[in-house]
Computed example of a mutant assay.
Amino acid sequence: MSKHTEFIAFFIRQKLQLPALYIRTAALLLLALLLLRHRTAAAAGVVSGIHTCLGTLIPSLFPFILLACLCTNSRAAQVLFRPLSPVMRHVFRLPACAAPAVLLGLTAGYPTGAKITANLYATGKLTREQAARLLCFCTAPGYAFAAAYTGSLLLRSERIGLNLFFACALAPLLLGLTLSRFAEKPEKSLKSPESAPGGIVSAVQDGIKATVSLCGFVIVFSMLLAVLHDAGIFQYLCGFLSRFGLTVPLSGALLTMGLEITAGVTQCIYWHLPVYFLAFGLGFSGVCIHLQIFSFFHKAGLPLSKTRYVLARFLNGLLSAAFYLLLSYFLPASTSVAVETSPLNTAPMAGSAASSLALIALSMFFLLTCILRSGKTPSKICGGNSTGKMLQ
C-alpha cells in the first residue's frame, strides 16, 4: 500500500512540475527572441548598468561589503559589538554575533546585512529560525544610498534624505521587534568563538565575489528594462495598471522600482512623484536586490521560503512609507526640483565625506583586526617579521 501511495505522490509531483517547466521554457524562448530582436537596446542597457556600477554602487558599497566580511570572521568584531550583546539577546532574541548584521545592514546598504547573515548561517553560528528571522529585518538602503544619493544628490535636500534613511531603518527595526516576540531567547554563550584562519584574505575574496555578483544582477536588470522598453512591453504593462486607477508615470515608477531600485528611484524623481513612494520602493528594495540576497545562500540554502521573504520586504516597504510620512510631518522639508539629466553620469560617493569616513573606519578596523590576531602591540607589528605572521 505504501508503494502505491509513493507512486501516486511521485506522479502528482511530476504532473505539477510539467506546467512550471513549460512556463520556464516559454520564458526562456521569449527572452532569447527579445534579445535577438532588440540587441541594440540590450547593449545600451548593459552600458547603462556598467555605468551605474562603476559610478555609484562599487564606490559606495564595496567598503561596507568588505567590512561585513571582516565582521563575520574577526575577533575584533566581537570586541567592537560586545556592548550590543544584551540588546541582541533580550530585545531581538538573537545571539551576539548577529549584532553586525543588524547594525551594518541598516546603515551600510542593501546586501551588507544579508551577507553577514549568510556567513553566520553557513558557519553554524545561527540556527535556521534565527537566520530566517534576522534576514527579514537586516536589509535597508543605508545612509549612502538613501540620504547621500537619493536625498542630497537627486532630490537636493539633505532633510528629505535623512527622513528616508531613518524611515527605512525604523521600519525593519519594528518588524524585527515584532518577530522577536514569538521567539525564544538564545542561550548565553560564555565562550568566544575562534576567528577563522586567513580571515583577512578570505574577507577580501568574499567581498570581491559579492560585489561582482551585485554588479552582475544590476547589469542584467538594466539590460532587461531597456529591452522591455524597446519592445513596448513595459508601456503595455503601464497601460494595464492604469486601468486600476494608477497614472502612467506612477505605474512605470512602481514597475521599475519593483525590478531594479536604482532605476526606479530615478524614474520616481523624474516624474515628481510623492516621496513616500520612494520610501516604499527603498523599503521593498526590488527583485534585483532579492536575487542578490538569494545568491548569498546558494551553499547553505535559504532559511525561509522566498514567498515569505518577499512578503516581509513588501511589509517593510509599507512601514517605510508610513514612517516617512510620520517623520515628514514632524520634520518637514521643502521638495526640490529633481535633476533633469541622468543621475548615472555622476559618481556621488567617489570623493564624498561619507566615503572618506567609511574608508578611514575600515582602515582602523583592519588594523585592530591585525593587532588582535597577532596578539602584539602596533609597534611590534610594524617591525620585524610580524607582518608576515599577521597575513598568514
Results as ranks from 00 to 15, higher is better:
T377F: 00
L319G: 15
T307A: 13
L246Y: 14
L179Y: 02
G286P: 12
V337Q: 14
F296L: 07
G301D: 07
T178M: 04
L255I: 15
H51F: 04
Y236A: 15
P378E: 02
F294G: 00
G113Y: 01
G113D: 10
S60K: 04
F11A: 15
L67N: 09
L36M: 12
T178A: 10
F145N: 06
L362G: 05
P274H: 08
V220D: 02
F277H: 14
Y149M: 08
L174H: 00
L315W: 00
M390D: 04
S363Y: 07
V87Q: 06
G375C: 03
Y324D: 03
S213G: 13
A146E: 07
V218L: 13
A263E: 13
V204G: 06
Y329H: 14
V79C: 11
L367K: 01
G232D: 04
I200P: 04
S328T: 13
P303D: 09
L36H: 01
K3E: 09
H4Q: 13
A26R: 07
A263W: 11
V220F: 13
C69Y: 12
A32Y: 09
G198W: 01
S48R: 14
L273W: 15
A353H: 05
I50C: 15
Y270L: 11
Y149S: 01
C138F: 01
A361W: 00
S342H: 10
Y309W: 13
S363K: 02
L30V: 14
L126H: 05
L311K: 07
S189K: 11
L66A: 11
K191V: 14
R39S: 14
P249A: 07
T346E: 12
D206F: 03
K115T: 10
H38G: 01
A114R: 12
A196F: 06
F81Q: 10
C136Y: 04
P186V: 04
T127N: 08
K3Y: 05
A183G: 03
I200S: 08
L134H: 06
V218F: 08
T5V: 10
S334Y: 12
N163Q: 05
A132C: 06
S374I: 04
T25Q: 11
V212H: 02
H51C: 10
K299W: 00
S295P: 02
M1L: 05
S336F: 00
L291I: 11
Y324W: 15
F11Y: 05
C168A: 07
T139K: 04
A27H: 05
K191Y: 03
L135S: 13
G388S: 11
T72Q: 13
V275R: 14
M349A: 15
T52F: 12
I65R: 06
L368R: 04
E158I: 04
L326I: 14
T387W: 13
Q205H: 06
F280E: 00
L175I: 10
E6D: 10
F280I: 03
S74L: 10
G142S: 05
C97Q: 15
